[in-house]
Design a protein around this nucleic acid. Structure first.
Length: 453
RNA sequence: GUGGGUAUAGCUCAGCUGGUAGAGCGCUGCGUUGUGGUCGCAGAUGUCGCGGGUUCGAGUCCCGUUACUCACCCCA
């Protein structure tokens, strides 16, 4: 078989890199559970009409088909899910009778999108979501809660670069535009154009506002002025007020956003910041209030690594609606990028902390016994694959990053060597203990205090 | 979906106006005969992405194709 080539957009990690990913998943899960979020796994597929509802055809869905299928025409079809929010909404409706509300869950799974891959953008990738849904109503303090939980989770990943959680509120934007006299579809159009500010210069956006959205010069200027406002505290409220626009919805949005920023402030550090950024709008989808995006320091070109928001009407069975708020972390976008650039990895490619050397094949049983004794005390180890020269066996350990090599002497005593320092000391498999920091692989990073990229 | 770029050793890449393929790193061995890393010496490795064309002769030029990749769109 010829050497296979990688499939674009379907990233695979080497063992050391995968270890980093597993550590991140474990940290996220632990943090989410600390806050009472239960885990759920939904099936990989949803009926196509579920995936495509809301006229959201922009998502490229992978469709599932049987190879031996004779006639697919009458089948309504199923496709792989492209996020975890839509399947979750379906799951809530399906199990509404068995769930307790407000229901909080976290979900860490693969999702698929048939888009053209690019750095940080894949066709198969992992998301980590937390959501809280209520029945009929869901108090605003849950918006604050999901932000705080994600802030805490990211903060615990101390080997990552710093990041900035950017927050805004759709009510604030929509109320502001309504107060300006923009109506109906114009509001969404203005929002969509202003959202391009990070790509296009303000001049260009202003021009588009006039031509495409058909707003007045004054309206365009005010909309742009609003979008330039950003603050790490609630000082943005005064800045918005100073623009002289008033509307009921605007007041509500301002109030919510200010509450959110104030409530998150105590959790922020130099590495983990929150910022009200009034240019954030998040596509057009189903968001109705709070919206989140997250930028990684030094990797701004990746786009948002963690986004979400408030959706008041995503799940509804006609009689009852289930408003929710959630936030979704792009695990692959974050990790695959850092790992492939070589800034994140583990200090060894195997879990073993000890390689038990084999003197000759006749004494392999003794080496196995030593390994068994170490494992009985939760010390991961492996026995050398061949009775090669000791130099080779040490090299075998070195290449895998295994820090210790165990030698059994002919008289039955043992010595263990730290191959990093060269120190070799007498040791007993029944009592020897490696330092705690050596027991498991460590995530190592080349990120310094300064910026990378 | 639109528009660029690239494809040569395990990896990163060089290879001029066409003349049967190279470097660095890595790998194997030896120096050092059962304790690695440094150093020195020696050695192995290629359907030049695939298919066709031009030519006495193609890694090199032409056409096609596939894969990868970058930007746009969009998003985690």
């Amino acid at each position: 078989m010829a050497k296979p080539t990688p499939l674009s957009g379907f990233p695979e990690l080497l063992p050391a890199q995968r270890y980093v990913e597993q550590q991140v998943v474990a940290t996220l899960a632990r943090t989410f559970e600390l806050h009472g979020f239960a885990n759920v796994e939904t099936r990989a597929v949803e009926p196509l009409d579920q995936l495509l509802r809301k006229g959201d055809t922009s998502k490229e869905v992978y469709v599932l088909r049987r190879l031996q299928e004779d006639d697919s025409s009458k089948d309504k079809g199923i496709g792989l899910h492209f996020d975890l929010t839509v399947p979750f909404a379906r799951f809530v409706l399906e199990n509404a009778g068995k769930l307790e509300f407000p229901f909080r869950r976290y979900q860490i799974q693969k999702v698929w999108r048939g888009e053209r891959p690019q750095e940080g953008r894949f066709r198969e990738f992992t998301q980590a979501d937390i959501d809280i849904v209520g029945r009929d109503t869901l108090p605003f303090h849950h918006d604050v809660e999901v932000a705080r939980v994600m802030l805490e989770a990211l903060g615990r990943l101390d080997f990552l670069p710093g990041f900035r959680l950017q927050v805004n509120n759709r009510k604030l934007i929509q109320g502001f535009y309504a107060g300006l006299g923009v109506t109906g579809e114009g509001i969404d159009e203005v929002m969509r154009l202003v959202d391009k500010l990070d790509k296009l210069p303000a001049e260009k956006v202003r021009e588009l506002l006039l031509t495409e959205a058909g707003v007045s010069e004054d309206q365009a200027d005010k909309a742009l002025a609003l979008a330039t406002i950003r603050a790490s505290d609630d000082s943005f409220v005064k800045q918005v007020r100073d623009l002289g626009v008033s509307h009921e919805l605007l007041d509500e949005g301002l109030d919510e956003l200010a509450t959110l920023v104030r409530a998150c402030a105590p959790l922020t550090t130099e590495r983990t910041r929150i910022e009200a950024d009034l240019s954030i709008a998040r596509g057009l989808d189903y968001y109705t209030g709070t919206v989140f995006e997250t930028r990684l320091d030094g990797y701004e070109s990746l786009g948002s690594i963690c986004s979400g928001g408030r959706y008041d009407a995503l799940a509804s069975d006609g009689r009852t609606t289930y408003p929710g708020v959630g936030i979704s972390l792009g695990l692959s976008r974050l990790l695959v990028t850092l790992v492939q650039r070589g800034v994140l990895t583990a200090d060894r490619s195997v879990p073993s902390v000890v390689l038990v050397a084999v003197t000759d094949e006749e004494s392999r049983a003794e080496a196995d016994a030593i390994a068994t004794a170490l494992r009985a005390r939760e010390i991961p180890c492996e026995v050398a694959p061949t009775a090669a020269k000791f130099g080779k066996q040490i090299r075998h350990a070195e290449r895998r990053g295994i820090p210790y090599v165990w030698f059994r002497q002919d008289d039955g005593t043992s010595e263990v060597k730290d191959i990093r320092s060269g120190n070799q000391v007498a040791a007993d498999p029944a009592t020897w203990q490696p330092p705690n920091e050596d027991l498991r692989p460590q995530v190592v990073t080349t990120i310094d205090e300064g910026e990378s990229k």
